[in-house]
Amino acid sequence: MEIIRYAELKAHPWRNGGGVTRELASHPAAAPAHAPGAGWDWRVSIADVSKAGDFSAYPGMDRVLTVVEGELLLLSVDGAEHPLEKFRPFRFSGDAAASGALPTGDIRDLNVITRSGVFKGYTSIIELSKKRAHPVFEGQFGILLQGQAAVASGTGGAEPAAGSAGTQAAEPTTLNRYDAVAGSDTDTPEILGRGFLAVVSIDRVAD
């Protein structure tokens, strides 16, 4: 089970000085971490936006942006204004001329960027439960946005063989805010808690 600790991620300053980005994951992982559109086909990151201004262009990419802290980002895309409230994912083209204004102060956002025609990214915000675990499957990331939660390895839906004594389940691991859990279809991670979780899905586009 892979847990990506937000506190251990390096902050990359924006070229325009308007914020910093922390990369949670990208593919291929060996690609340059902060070169727009160069060398990777998808990236999941969290950005702190502290100054109004232009966003970097990502030609040939598709973007999903979600405000995860702060009240409002006023996003302009090719001249059209879109007020983005907390926990409301918004999709737009990386080819577009985009800029952001901060009418209520600094914000933090979750970014999912995928190469058009190769991968498609999705972001869903769900409310966690202490009674029913939420599984994170292959091609997904579960990111704790708010509240308290823990993750444990599941069974991937497999039932123990008849007569098998099974193995002792591992103790759940506590997640901190903005920690990410990489999904798997084997020993599928399962998250329990109270609060809100972002589920990011990266799907390969069929030929």
Rank of each mutant, 00 (worst) to 15 (best):
Y6L: 08
A7V: 07
A11Y: 08
W14M: 02
N16E: 05
V20H: 03
T21G: 02
R22L: 12
A29T: 03
A33G: 05
A35V: 13
P36K: 09
W40F: 12
W42D: 00
W42N: 00
R43D: 00
R43N: 02
A47W: 04
A47D: 04
A47V: 02
A47L: 14
V49A: 03
S50I: 12
A52P: 13
A52W: 02
D54C: 05
A57H: 13
A57M: 14
Y58W: 10
Y58E: 01
P59D: 11
D62K: 04
D62L: 01
L65V: 10
T66A: 04
V68E: 07
E69W: 06
G70I: 02
E71P: 01
L72P: 03
L74E: 15
V77W: 13
G79N: 11
A80F: 10
L84P: 07
L84E: 05
K86H: 05
R91M: 01
S99Y: 02
S99C: 08
S99I: 01
S99N: 09
G100F: 00
D106E: 15
D106Q: 10
I107H: 09
N111P: 03
T114C: 11
R115Q: 02
S116Q: 14
G117C: 03
V118C: 07
S124N: 15
S124R: 15
S124D: 14
S124G: 09
I125W: 11
I126A: 13
I126S: 15
S129N: 14
K130P: 10
R132I: 04
A133I: 04
P135Q: 14
P135H: 12
V136N: 07
V136H: 10
F137N: 07
E138M: 12
E138W: 12
Q140E: 11
I143A: 03
L145A: 09
Q148N: 12
Q148L: 03
A149L: 08
A149P: 10
A150I: 02
S153K: 11
S153F: 07
G156E: 11
G156L: 10
G157A: 08
E159W: 13
A161N: 12
A162L: 15
S164W: 13
S164L: 04
A165H: 11
A165L: 15
Q168P: 02
A170Y: 03
P172K: 06
P172Y: 02
N176C: 08
A180R: 09
V181G: 00
V181M: 05
A182I: 13
S184F: 08
S184P: 07
S184R: 13
D185P: 01
D187V: 01
P189I: 06
I191G: 05
L192C: 06
G193Q: 15
G195K: 10
A198H: 12
D203E: 06
V205E: 13
D207L: 05
